[in-house]
Amino acid sequence: MQDSAPTPLTEEQVRRAPKVLLHDHLDGGLRPQTIVELAAECGHELPVDGGAEELGRWFAESADSGSLERYLETFDHTVGVMQTASALTRVARECVEDLAADGVVYAEIRYAPEQHVEGGLSLDEVVAAVEQGFEEGCAAAGDRIVVRQLLTAMRHQARSMEIAELAVAWRDRGVAGFDIAGAEAGYPPTRHLDAFEYLQRENSHFTIHAGEAFGLPSIWQAIQWCGADRLGHGVRIIDDITVAEDGTIELGRLAAYVRDKRIPLEMCPSSNLQTGAAASMAEHPIGLLKQLRFRVTINTDNRLMSGTSMTQEMALLAETFGYGLRDLEWFTLNAMKSAFLPFDQRLELISSVIKPGYAALAGGVDPLG
């Protein structure tokens, strides 16, 4: 579906394009100024004291290390200031405001409730505070965006069943599904098999971080043992694809299965570069995977740490691979089709928002009115 010699896109065109975001961490998208203010309120010590601008630089530099483990260390300071209901609500509200301003029309935002109870909140109170923020943000945006929660369990902890039960309890109140996250090496998804089996019995949706810092075994376990609906990142599926010198492409059995089953890949290009999952944007597997028509989606992962947005991720890919509006629409439709949202609601967003929005852009009309 790639355009033939598409006209280069401007950043403004990309910003105005309707976007769907499936992989974004709430604690990875705070505004630096908000962190400074919340830290002052709760007494959390920040790594630098030069204000919001310097703090923003610190996050970007610390995350740009090529190590997933060091990348994850930056969350000590975001999670550290998100330990009260008011802080969680503020962060959630500002998240929606920032996404709406970036042209996002649907988003699933993930976070680990178990990491926000140090101030005495219960798990239910954490989810309720985030939901309040999302509702306030959507209302302030004139309901131009739909935002739902993904509840994450940390793969190195032992609370996955508890979080899975929490996700099911809240699924009619703003929670779209479940996820596990954290360092992959040494913590395979099968450690949480009881939680995934419970979710399947409850007809609930879940995604699994797999194939980012670890290889094909992580992806295989996530799909074939745990039954993941989507793969968080899934970059290393490229290891099961062989490109011969003459350009012939051969898919291994796992890669072929992922493509045949249309299992969505939640790709986060800039983040993948920072964590070493991809060597450069030009070498990012997303180019070949799109060519082979895998169910690829574009995501931000952690907007603060990567200093990014959906507009920036799309613009980078457009510049790198020569994508045009039709390509960006293809990615967006992939994401909307893969969302943990009832089928009729997905169709409604596709038919009334996404397709008309791209058609208006192609015709030189402002889709935002």
Rank of each mutant, 00 (worst) to 15 (best):
A335I: 01
P32G: 04
D172E: 15
G357Q: 11
G51E: 09
M1A: 15
H25K: 13
G56M: 06
E136I: 06
I354F: 09
E131P: 00
L341A: 07
A153Y: 11
N302S: 14
A256I: 03
D49R: 13
G232F: 02
V126F: 00
L121N: 04
D143Q: 08
A282F: 04
L55N: 05
E12L: 11
T207W: 06
E202W: 00
E131T: 11
T78E: 09
M281N: 02
A183E: 12
S62A: 11
A5Y: 05
F178P: 08
L9Y: 12
I237S: 04
V48K: 04
I354T: 04
A244S: 13
V258D: 02
D76E: 15
G252E: 05
S86L: 01
I180K: 07
L292D: 07
L251N: 02
A158F: 13
G215E: 02
I163C: 10
H156Y: 15
S352K: 12
A278H: 11
V147Q: 05
L199S: 05
A167I: 07
L328Q: 06
Y358R: 05
W170V: 02
S280A: 02
Y358G: 08
L193E: 06
G50F: 10
K355M: 07
S306Q: 10
T84G: 00
L88I: 03
G369S: 13
P6Q: 12
W330S: 08
A87K: 02
D229P: 04
I145H: 01
A359E: 13
D143K: 06
S270H: 13
C42K: 08
L99N: 11
E97A: 13
G174D: 01
E61W: 10
G247T: 14
A222F: 09
D194A: 14
H233I: 05
D24Q: 14
E348F: 04
G137L: 01
G120A: 03
A87Y: 00
P113T: 03
S351K: 08
E69M: 12
V96N: 13
K290G: 12
Q2L: 15
G232A: 01
P342F: 05
R303A: 09
D366N: 15
L254G: 12
L216G: 14
T190N: 08
F59D: 00
A222D: 04
L333V: 15
R16P: 00
E131Q: 14
D246T: 01
G364S: 06
S62C: 10
A315M: 15
